[in-house]
Design a protein around this nucleic acid. Structure first.
Lengths: 146, 146
DNA sequence: CGCTTGACGATACTCAGTCTCATTTGCTAG
DNA sequence: CTAGCAAATGAGACTGAGTATCGTCAAGCG
């Protein structure tokens, strides 16, 4: 839901070339709402006859991920997916019905991490937190004709 | 680190056949210390000439996961791995140096989930939390000759 | 405008995980 | 103890994600 300029700007600022294929991939991502896989983008590209190579899409995703314009998440079923996001530490709430995602800072986490560190003796370096549930829109839709 | 009987008992109680291949896979898992992948078990089996088919190992892992004798985790690099564990809700702390894992109940999580639910309007159903860090043993080893 | 180098696309490849199907084996009933 | 059946196995084909290679192309600089 961020617009293309965001990703493009990040690319530019990091000193990478603003190539046509990269703009196209950025465009495809910005049209997306929830999480998506590399395969989704490949399909999108083919559908819209964008003529972007498969490898290029993977490379773009890898680059965007590195630049924090996009983030990899792991779905409950184990599949990999990506979500567009702001380049600050945060977590995602993922709707298991429509795949829409929201970012939250989850400010309670540092306390949890600290607590776990104290109890286990581990020096906690990082964590991965993903929350799954039903978004407000789907809840409303469900109660209307559920 | 749990012993073979644990997994075998769980199998039995759930009404599944106690076959030789399943015992072997359970044995391989119990010999493992940290997280492991299906490929690791395949290698172990070949090394020890256990004669267990690849498909069987995948099937056994799937079954054990379903019975909560084992859990799937996602490593920071996106790889899939499994850890043996107790069948109650909990989370894993994973040593990024030696792969050893510890279980914690992470009792602060419900509060975080509730808070996130309130702020985003999502009805939170489940979450995935994995913590990565350095375990006490590795910390000690590092400071000795680091 | 022309050069240099990073990026591209086609394609071959690898590897995890799944599926199929003929064979085997755990279990149970007799 | 044995027979028989369904569940499970193993070999190997298959799929699909992701990676590597390499000749060609074009972004961006001077």
């Amino acid at each position: 839901m961020t617009d293309i300029p965001t990703i493009v700007t990040v690319l530019d600022r990091a000193g990478y070339r603003l190539t046509e294929p990269r703009r196209k991939v950025a465009g495809l991502i910005s049209r997306r709402d929830g999480h998506f896989s590399a395969a989704d983008l490949v399909d999108d590209a083919r559908e819209r006859r964008l003529d972007v190579g498969r490898a290029t899409i993977f490379r773009a995703l890898e680059l965007f991920t590195e630049l924090n314009a996009v983030e990899r998440v792991d779905l409950p079923n184990g599949d990999h997916a990506y979500v567009e996001c702001e380049p600050v530490h945060h977590h995602h709430v993922i709707c298991s019905q429509c795949a829409r995602t929201t970012e939250v800072e989850a400010c309670g986490m540092p306390a949890v991490a600290r607590d776990v560190g104290r109890r286990t003796g581990f020096k906690i370096q990082s964590h991965r937190l993903e929350l799954f549930g039903i978004c407000p829109e789907c809840q409303a839709a469900n109660s209307r004709h559920g």
